[in-house]
Simulated scan of single mutants.
Amino acid sequence: MSLTFAVPARTEQAPAARTRRRRGRTARRTMTGWAFAGPATIVVIGLSIFPAVWAFLISRTKWNGVAPATGVGWRNYERLAQDPDLASAARHSLLLTAVFVSASVLLGMALAVALNRRIRLIGFYRTCIVVPYVASAAATGILASYVFNPQYGAANSLLRRIGLPEQQFLENPGQALLVICGIALWGEIGFTTVVYLAALQDIPRELVEAAVVDGAGRWRVFRHITLPGLRPVTLFIAIWQSITALQLFDLIYTTTRGGPMNSTQTIVYYIYEVAFQTRRLGYGAAVAYVLFAVTLLLSGAVLWHNRRGTAGMR
């Protein structure tokens, strides 16, 4: 009888032992992963959360960075609605964002469709599209300031050769913001093209071939198969490029410095002038937090609209 009961006891203990060993290996792998990723994660979180909290505390003070700060409560935020310079910068940022995002989506999609073909030297063409995105925005701005110089720039030289009137470009208050948008688009179009190109290659070819067999032309295939497949990517690009446009600073700093006549002064450049040129750090931090809130609400609204549209299609 003793032997009869010993065998089942061992068989019952074996699975439990294997489970404990498996859990031990999993715990060791988890601890090893956190040992490598933990310090970097702590540094990244610390560099993100600490400045954000500190900036919020500064936004409730009057401080020039040298003298002791004076608490003013929510007074800096109350002044935002009465600041005409901030309202002008907000209009410039909204116009820049609307033009830049729309052009990024349309041009990026068109270039991706053109580059999603098996043609000769396709790798060279794709590389040429990505190169401007790799270059820094500061270098792009310095180069563009020479290209669009009204006196000796390459843009006016080209206009003279084809018989068109010369333009003032970055020195004209009515043209400067659109030229800035074009320069930013030239530097960012490689990103949107690559993202759209990857999305196009993920669309099942069986759907396209079935539509062609059923007699659908290129436009109908693009409208009913390609566009719905690109919808999630379009949402991502719209949010990403909106944030990029709202935070545009280095390109403006290296080209116009907010001029001429403040026609290219965006919210981020206005924050720079208020905080670091006029030394109103508290008010500049308040404007920065409002920009963060607007960006967050904009992203949330786009996501909500996309989910609502997806649910309606179902």
Score class of each variant (00 low, 15 high):
I180K: 05
A14K: 05
R10E: 06
D85I: 10
W63Y: 07
A154G: 07
A176P: 00
L143E: 05
L170F: 15
V101H: 03
R21M: 14
T26L: 11
A137W: 09
R91V: 04
G259R: 14
Q175V: 12
A198P: 04
L200D: 04
S104H: 10
W219L: 15
Q151E: 06
T234L: 03
T234D: 00
R91L: 07
T19M: 09
Q151D: 09
G71F: 15
T19N: 05
T255M: 06
I49K: 08
V179K: 03
I119H: 06
A35I: 03
T26V: 07
I243S: 03
A67T: 13
P232K: 08
R75F: 11
C128I: 09
M261G: 02
H224N: 12
A98C: 12
L86K: 01
N262H: 04
I239W: 05
R118V: 13
A144I: 12
L158S: 11
L230N: 00
G282C: 07
V221Y: 07
H92R: 10
G309S: 13
I237T: 03
T41E: 02
P173G: 02
S242K: 07
R79P: 00
L185Q: 08
I183Q: 00
G33E: 09
I58T: 03
F191S: 08
T61S: 12
E209H: 14
A35C: 10
A211D: 11
A184C: 05
I243Q: 06
T30H: 04
T295N: 06
Q201I: 09
Y146I: 00
S263D: 02
L159G: 01
N172W: 03
A69H: 08
L95V: 11
L185I: 06
S59T: 08
T41N: 03
S59H: 04
F36Y: 14
L158T: 09
T295L: 15
T193I: 07
G309P: 04
L106R: 08
F222I: 05
T26E: 13
A137G: 04
R91Q: 12
L297V: 15
T61Q: 10
L303T: 08
A139T: 14
D83W: 10
L47A: 14
T256F: 02
A154D: 04
A139Y: 13
V7N: 04
R117G: 02
W63L: 00
E171C: 07
L96W: 10
G174K: 13
S299L: 02
T295P: 00
G33P: 07
I183S: 01
Q82H: 12
R223T: 04
V179N: 01
M109W: 02
R223D: 08
T61W: 06
F249H: 00
E12W: 05
F36I: 15
G182F: 11
R120A: 12
L57C: 06
R314Q: 06
P51W: 14
F124L: 14
T266Q: 01
T256L: 04
L3H: 06
N172R: 07
Q277H: 10
Q265E: 13
N306T: 11
A67N: 13
